[in-house]
Amino acid sequence: MRSKLIAPSVSIIIPTLNEAAHLGRTLTQLEILDPAAEEVIVVDGGSTDATLTLAHMHGCRVIRSQRKGRAVQMNRGAAAASGEILCFLHADTLVPSDLVQLMATTLADPAVSCGGFLSLMRGARRTRWGVSLHNALKTHYAALLFRPHRYLLNGFRVLFGDQVMFCRRRDFERCGGFDDTLPIMEDADLCERLGRLGRIRQLNRVVESSDRRVVRWGSWKATGIYLMIGLLWGLGVPASKLKRFYGEICD
């Protein structure tokens, strides 16, 4: 028997663009959340594959965005959401079945403004332990290098989309949501603004993301790209220039 939905309610927002190869697995996992989320919102940027068909099959609320881009699409989803907690989830990421409880418990602490998880990159053939370790470490070193006083005094962390960011809707609205002019690093930018409202907490629980970009680039190149992006972002390089290191955001 599924447990009764606890307060506060949760809206899960998934930006998509041609994600049919991964979305079905993610939505299947969301169907066994216990307690369940209030709603799952798929915000699509113009898919030409079976993404929308899958979203409808799984009973998601579907929004078609006239503009594509993760920040734009996630803001559209947040504006339409009814939940008190907003959870931003990539279409290729699997979450623990107690996701809703974990988020509610974390944000029950009024000193916490945002949370996320440990991201494990995994594919059909292997787990990317090295890349996954670097992704965990950069939440610390990016904050320590570029916002040391906030890291040491206020527990500031820099989380990224693969780590399944979540926050209260009122805090999201208070800090202005995602900056939809950013083609990349919109997640780190939101963390920096949410970090002014409270602590950023990374839970000691794992979410699993596809290693598709690592397969394309190779582990060393992928780690180098992620490292370069983080360093340049911290030094103030505009996101429009950083984008060329990462390729298309929603490919």
Rank of each mutant, 00 (worst) to 15 (best):
R157L: 11
S210F: 09
T105N: 13
L203K: 02
K138A: 04
V215Y: 01
P148D: 05
A21L: 05
R212I: 08
A222S: 02
G161S: 14
L153W: 14
K241P: 06
D44P: 10
D44F: 04
S97R: 13
I184G: 02
L23T: 08
V10I: 06
L242R: 05
A222D: 02
L145R: 08
R61F: 06
T16R: 00
I184C: 09
K68M: 13
I13Q: 09
L232H: 07
R193P: 04
V100G: 05
G247S: 01
L159P: 10
R170K: 07
T139D: 03
A37Y: 06
C250K: 04
R157M: 10
E208F: 14
A20S: 05
P148E: 00
L27F: 07
S209Y: 01
G130C: 04
I13W: 03
L133C: 03
V112L: 01
A108S: 07
L23H: 10
L194I: 02
N154R: 15
V42H: 08
T127E: 12
D34A: 12
I229Y: 04
A222M: 00
F178I: 02
V62H: 08
T105C: 15
S210E: 02
V158S: 15
G230T: 10
Q66F: 02
R64V: 07
R216I: 05
L153N: 15
E208D: 13
M165L: 15
G130R: 08
A37E: 02
Q73V: 00
F172Y: 07
G59I: 00
R2I: 11
C114F: 03
E248F: 08
R193W: 08
S3G: 15
V164T: 14
M74K: 15
T106V: 11
A81Y: 11
L102M: 12
L159Y: 10
D179T: 09
V10K: 10
G247I: 08
L242H: 07
G59N: 11
D179S: 09
G59M: 08
T53Q: 06
A80D: 14
E19S: 11
